[in-house]
Design a binder for these strands. Structure first.
Lengths: 337, 337
DNA sequence: CTGTTAGCGCATTCAG
DNA sequence: CTGAATGCGCTAACAG
């Protein structure tokens, strides 16, 4: 590749002038300017972002660390972040921590070494507090994504989880369901904890007995998850509804229900968070609490943008609302069952 | 951030020595080494990847440009690329061209400016030949992903598309289907063209009349796509099977079929490429030609790795096989219809 | 076994 | 309006 020096030589000007026409950072005589432009063309010169970043101490890049690229909701957030970042002329550096704390801190470290201007982090399930503390010492802007904490020193964006779960439980309760099974997942994940909280609140509010509900809190990689679901399916106390707290948990639940020879909604009502795409095209169509994952990603970049622009306000927390899409899987419950 | 100079000063050695312990690039006395390590600890020094890359003229990063982050198959490829790149200690720079040639070349340009060591490119539908030509002049290693061309000057990896389509058509023909509808999509996309080719081959091989088949080649963003599908649904020539060539096209097809009050597989057999995740949990379960998208991503990084290691062999083309998952949507066709 | 030093390519003072 | 010169932080000769 040609460098700025060659361009300058060919145009018969100094590198300084070339730099200035490149960045439009001071006036240059139209004629000179034209010569420079021609030289750039002729040498097929391209700016070296590395050298530029080094000199300006800004990379115009941001890093994104997510815990599970396979989960549809996260894939969609990545999409949103990518979209918003591109709009701002920011390059995106993507890392997947695969729900591992070590990989997570390694990823963060690598991104900081690369001097990203900002960092968007969805913490892994077993993420330690340390990573947040470490990050505080850095001068990079940080936004926490999806998995938030109440006392975050950083801006954070995610969805409101308790409220929709309460509505969902309320809906099921008023349809006559007295015993439900919550497939709750890993309780170290804030999002899932909030959903479980919302469940408990909803149960109490509906005047149901919390001790008669079943909560399965196995991590999705735990083989005991499937067993627990199977056990719940044939629970002698006869639960009538299942709620899954994520796509992966929904898959596990549907599989076990099917394997037990039961059907939805004939034998059980069913609802899930996140869910499946185009669920309405298939039977049973599934009642789903849908988060605006793309928008969450976009919002994260928005928050970051403000910080990059120098905002020093107190940490902000943005909660986006989820919507409940009621479908057949909760719709045909027969009270007389 | 502390620099290597401060570390050197604190440890009472030269920056050279610090660099060498950092990179393990020459022997240093254990005692000295320990002092350096302590100094690194004390100053919480971190290497500056930018300066390092500049000096070594290698960034240990690769770029990935995809045309549609929303398409599940691409999302999965991104996942595979990310996974394989991380394993090699390569940082991933991700861009989405949104099927636009301009965005695509802009993305490529930005990545080259950032001096990625290699580039993985899934070309957009309207990608011009120019981009390939431009890339040839660069010293970056390039791998074409998914959307390949027969005379590529670069390594490329994708799936074999004709063969599974032929098998699919053959399967349908022997089940008694004489008139089929191919929802083929944008014919500028090589992958989709190959699938359409395979369709024609399959029809001929089955001894069917090609002129009695319907091929809908509207781009998925074209509003006429839905109309064309609707028309095919009520075609007086009574086609009995639909084949969609991508997830998005499958969605469009299923929507129109449903909207017309028809059902699968009662009224039509149906099969799709790429398809939906966990399709077996829902009714109708959909016969799907499934590509190993994650592995395609991994394979792309493998090819790139060889080039980064200096391989100068002729351009290689890797075709991964797809598998056909036969399910209910093609299984219950009644010949007597 | 370790230190000195010259750039990598650019943006940016400071002079003119 | 333009040029010369400095240094961002690091690695890799080269020298000792």
């Amino acid at each position: 590749m040609a460098t700025i020096v060659e361009v300058a030589a060919l145009a018969g000007v100094s590198t300084s002038t070339v730099s200035h026409v490149l960045n439009e950072t001071r006036h240059v005589e139209p004629a000179t300017r034209r010569r420079v432009l021609e030289a750039i063309e002729k040498t097929s010169y391209r700016q070296d972002a590395l050298a530029r970043a080094m000199r300006r101490s800004r990379t115009d890049s941001i890093g994104l660390v997510i815990p599970d690229a396979g989960e549809p909701a996260f894939a969609e957030m990545v999409h949103g972040v990518e979209h918003a970042a591109a709009k701002l002329g920011l390059t995106l550096l993507l890392s997947n921590s695969a729900e591992s704390a070590e990989r997570e801190s390694k990823a963060v470290r690598v991104l900081l070494e690369r001097r990203v201007d900002g960092l968007i982090l969805a913490r892994s399930a077993n993420s330690s507090r340390d990573i947040v503390d470490d990050l505080r010492g850095e001068n990079a802007a940080v936004v926490l994504l999806d998995r938030m904490s109440p006392d975050s020193p950083f801006d954070q964006v995610g969805t409101e989880n308790r409220q929709p779960m309460r509505s969902l439980v309320s809906h099921l309760a008023s349809a006559g369901h007295r015993r439900m099974v919550l497939v709750a997942g890993d309780m170290r994940v804030p999002t899932l904890r909030e959903r479980a909280d919302g469940f408990a609140m909803g149960i109490v509010e509906a005047g149901l007995d919390i001790s008669e509900q079943t909560v399965i809190a196995s991590d999705q990689t735990d083989p005991s998850l499937a067993e627990a679901i199977t056990r719940a399916v044939s629970d002698p106390r006869r639960p009538t509804a299942f709620i899954a707290c994520s796509t992966v948990l929904a898959v596990a639940t549907l599989e076990r229900v099917k394997a037990a020879g039961k059907a939805i909604p004939r034998d059980f009502a069913f609802a899930t968070f996140d869910g499946f795409s185009h669920s309405d095209l298939f039977e049973p169509s599934i009642t789903t609490v849908r988060q605006p994952a793309f928008e969450v990603g976009v919002a994260a970049v928005d928050l970051l943008k403000d910080r990059l622009a120098g905002s020093t306000s107190l940490p902000r927390t943005v909660h986006l609302a989820q919507t409940i899409e009621y479908r057949d899987s909760t719709g045909r419950f027969e009270l007389a069952r």
